[in-house]
Design a protein around this nucleic acid. Structure first.
Length: 298
DNA sequence: CTGCGAACCTGTTAGC
DNA sequence: TGCTAACAGGTTCGCA
């Protein structure tokens, strides 16, 4: 489900309920997700106040009032939903107010009380590729999950000159390089396909081919950089994408999927005016790549 | 170091 | 309708 825009959408949905709230009770319903939960996970969270809710790449990071951070990754199928607890003061309309049926994949329930009222923040994850951990804020940047992450594809962090340094000499296909979280942190299969289509670049092209012999970004790399920014910004503005089940914290579906140009469109017409070719699906590093063989140049 | 396949786990969908 | 196979947003590990 979640690439950076989806995780950012989740963060924005959770923020009003979690920031400034106290975690009064935690239900941890199994010993592990992808990894075993840290020792005393629930009891170490109980009683803590959440100072702020942030994001790095595809990780959500909740800063707690004791200097620890709750880190969570949604994997492929993780989602959070919010349910108002009792006659809470949560803004009407924004969240689920009915207690939904208990799902067998509801693995963690945070009971919170804060400025927005009382709520349950429920982590659901059928495939359990997601994970959570608790660590000292001061240790976060040196943690294995974070220390080698590349730049965020948002704001000013991503630029063609910096990317050129990362891609220079790389023989791996562009598709693989863009999925590498050590180069750009937060891109996933959908937005990589979309960005390459926008930049008219073949996913098979060697990544190093976008860099000159003196290490400068070629024009193609400038265009790709802008395409990545645009795709990510638009997806965030649209509230995250969905193939089938990306549920936002308010229970609605992301709708960027209506805007996909190539992703999951095998056999359909390339949407570029005048192209007339058909979107193709190939497998690279075990994952589907969708592209237009006519307008994405090698 | 690089690239690639497999693994993790469950659910949905396409095809017969 | 029912069964099976393929495939799914991510990350990590092991092997060549």
């Amino acid at each position: 489900m979640p690439e950076l825009p989806e995780v950012e959408t989740v963060r924005r949905g959770l923020q009003p309920v979690m920031e400034g709230a106290r975690i009064v009770r935690v239900e941890q319903r199994r010993a592990d997700l992808r990894f075993v939960f840290p020792a005393d996970f629930a009891s170490r969270l109980e009683g803590r106040q959440i100072i702020s809710l942030g994001r790095r790449a595809k990780y959500l990071i909740a800063d707690l009032d004791d200097g620890m951070v709750l880190v969570s990754h949604l994997g492929m199928s993780g989602s959070f939903r919010i349910e108002a607890d009792g006659e809470g003061t949560l803004r009407p309309g924004a969240f689920h107010h009915e207690r939904s049926k208990d799902d067998k994949h509801d693995h963690v329930v945070l009971h919170v009380e804060g400025p927005a009222g009382k709520a349950r923040v429920i982590y659901n994850d059928p495939r359990r590729f997601g994970y959570m951990d608790l660590m000292a804020r001061a240790a976060l940047v040196e943690h294995a999950w974070f220390r080698s992450l590349g730049v965020e594809p948002t704001g000013n962090s991503l630029n063609a000159t910096g990317l050129a340094g990362q891609l220079a000499g790389k023989k791996s296909p562009l598709k693989a390089a863009l999925l590498d979280q050590r180069i750009i942190a937060g891109l996933g299969n959908i937005y990589v396909c979309e960005a390459m289509w926008r930049a008219k670049l073949s996913p098979l092209k060697p990544a190093g081919g976008l860099v000159t012999s003196t290490g400068r970004p070629r024009k193609q790399l400038e265009l790709l950089t802008q395409a990545i920014r645009d795709v990510i910004d638009e997806a965030i503005a649209a509230g995250g994408s969905s193939l089938r089940d990306h549920i936002r914290t308010d229970g609605t579906l992301g709708y960027f999927q209506h805007g996909f140009s190539v992703y999951d469109r095998e056999g359909k017409a390339c949407p570029r005016p005048g192209c007339g070719d058909t979107v193709r699906r190939i497998v690279q590093s075990g994952r589907s790549t969708f592209y237009c063989p006519r307008c994405q140049k090698h």
